[in-house]
Design a protein around this nucleic acid. Structure first.
Length: 478
RNA sequence: UCCCUAGUAGCUCAGUUGGUUAGAGCGGCGGACUGUUAAUCCGUAGGUCGUAGGUUCAAGUCCUACCUGGGGAGCCA
């Protein structure tokens, strides 16, 4: 007999039907004559309650059914006599597929801290919280492809190994096959990368954007969705050394089109989550409530599902950097000297400023546009005022910058001039500049940090808990 | 990288101004219980107090360095 997934049993199973369920034991409890096993197979957050008449089974088998063990159970479904579930299974045959020593299995049937589970990342999928998080993560990855496919975007695979160090997005991981103990040297005594695998120094990508632009300026609209690597020594709840990024790039889009797309895209994903992941979201919402119940009222976050619905049903606020500086200068914390960092036109906004705008002033996602050119990348569209560029950052409560994007400078002379000003090697970037030489058009794009978005949707607090195996400074276990 | 903070049983933590044999809850194990919901009740085992130095008659407790975790900041997605 084929196995039936527990999701299907719980949602479609009928009394008196005989089925086979396979899964892992969450808890076992019971008395002299009857034992209850909570069985979970990852298909849904809920467990199947297996009812075992002790007299029908070998004592040694029952002894081996411990938390974490894998079972195949055949039995008849029945309306539950207990109150926690509507349907349950009366076991007729139980096979122990894989035992689990209760003395050594780290995941106990009790509350664990997220820190402990992070150190047991190989087994944390077996908890309610992490199975919920990773089902939601999957659903969001799927919805991303679905959204772009429906809009006629092409999924473009940009390279993971790159020779370009001009992307300007931070420190890179070197990729090399040279002997680290005895690398070949050139006349100047420097490492001779001509002898390396690719004949030049190469790194892991920090962004697929530049290659993405090449695709967009022919295919029209493309997006990338792949791993991204930054060798920054960042130790925060929202940075990873290896993370996944979605980067759409569109020809014939100006900054407003870009913002419209970003907003529509985020709302599409949130709607998809609400329509397809309700069980998991409900669980995560409760988890968050439990976690925060000891906090004072004003420090608790909004109910997760209410928060998602709020973002879905409200327009994002769109203001310029200049207007934001104005608002900050008129704000209470500014006047009372509560900000730690200065607020002045031309300097980048600090976390505290962004949080004030999003969480206190507007209480809504905010898109900031038209930043001073000196704090933004070389490729951004230079505005007519000569001072600002057509950048846009989407700021979310708690997470901060979730999207960073811009209209791209399509004018060859302006772009080359800016590159020289910022010491970007123009000659090496000949392939990028060719798009401006031949049929250059207005175009735009942005990058969405996938894990930051998953933080928002799941209500989790640490980015290391929304990626299966986190890579952070001093940590590449598993 | 900087600032703050923590490291005591499998897990979560308590351990007073340094002072005899280091505690609890949960989990594990054994037992009880005619259907439980992270079951309940009784019993039981389990600890080089992060590592290395130092101060002291005496260090889980004080000092120094290092390692690791957590929070915040910077860099950014």
């Amino acid at each position: 007999m084929k196995r039936t997934k527990i999701k299907d049993i719980l949602q479609k199973g009928k009394a008196n039907e005989t089925v086979v369920a396979k899964g892992w034991v969450r808890t076992k409890r019971g008395s002299k004559n009857v034992i209850f096993i909570a069985l979970n197979d990852g298909s849904i957050i809920h467990n199947l309650q297996v009812v075992v008449d002790v007299n029908n089974f070998e004592e040694s088998l029952l002894r081996d059914i411990n938390t974490g063990a894998a079972l195949s159970v055949t039995g008849k479904l029945a309306e539950s006599a207990g109150s926690g579930q509507s349907i349950e299974m009366l076991a007729e045959q139980i096979d122990l597929l894989g035992g689990s020593d209760p003395d050594k299995y780290p995941i106990q049937p009790k509350r664990h801290t997220l820190e402990f589970l992070r150190e047991n990342a190989h087994l944390r999928f077996r908890t309610n919280t992490f199975s919920a998080v990773f089902r939601v993560r999957h659903a969001m990855a799927f919805a991303i492809h679905k959204y772009f496919n429906e809009k006629g975007f092409n999924y473009l695979h940009t390279p993971i190994v790159t020779a370009s160090d001009a992307e300007g997005a931070g420190q890179m991981f070197r990729v090399s096959t040279l002997d680290p103990k005895n690398p070949p040297l050139n006349e100047n005594g420097e490492i001779d990368y001509n002898q390396d695998f690719f004949g030049k120094a190469t790194n892991l990508t920090v962004s697929g954007q530049l290659e993405g632009e090449l695709g967009a300026l022919a295919l029209g609209e493309i997006y990338t969705f792949g791993p991204t690597f930054r060798a920054e020594n960042s130790n925060t709840t929202r940075h990873l050394a290896e993370f996944w990024m979605i980067e759409p790039e569109m020809a014939f889009y100006d900054l407003n089109d870009n913002m419209d797309l970003a907003e529509e895209f985020l709302k599409y994903l949130i709607k998809y989550a609400l329509e397809n992941c309700m069980d998991d979201l409900q669980f995560l919402a409760n988890r968050l409530k439990q976690e925060e119940k000891n906090k004072p009222q004003d420090q608790r976050s909004m109910d997760l599902i209410e928060k998602l619905e709020f973002v879905l049903n409200n327009d994002f606020i769109r203001i310029t950097y200049t207007e934001a500086i104005d608002i900050l200068k008129k704000s209470k914390p500014y006047k009372k000297n509560k900000f730690q960092f200065p607020v002045d036109w031309g300097i980048d906004l600090q976390s505290e400023h962004e949080r004030y705008l999003v969480e206190k002033h507007f209480k809504c996602p905010v898109i900031l546009t038209d930043y001073p050119k000196d704090i933004k990348a070389f490729y951004m569209k230079q505005n007519d005022d000569g001072k600002t560029v057509g950048a846009m950052d989407v700021l979310f409560p708690q997470i901060g910058e979730i999207i960073g994007g811009s209209q791209r400078e399509e004018n060859l002379e302006k772009l080359e001039k800016r590159m020289k000003e910022m010491d970007i090697p123009v000659e090496e970037m000949w392939w990028y500049l060719d798009t401006r030489r031949f049929g250059s058009v207005e175009h735009s794009g942005f990058g969405l940090g996938f894990e930051r978005f998953i933080l928002f949707v799941t209500g989790m607090g640490n980015i290391r808990d929304v990626i299966p195996f986190a890579r952070t400074p001093k940590n590449a276990e598993f």
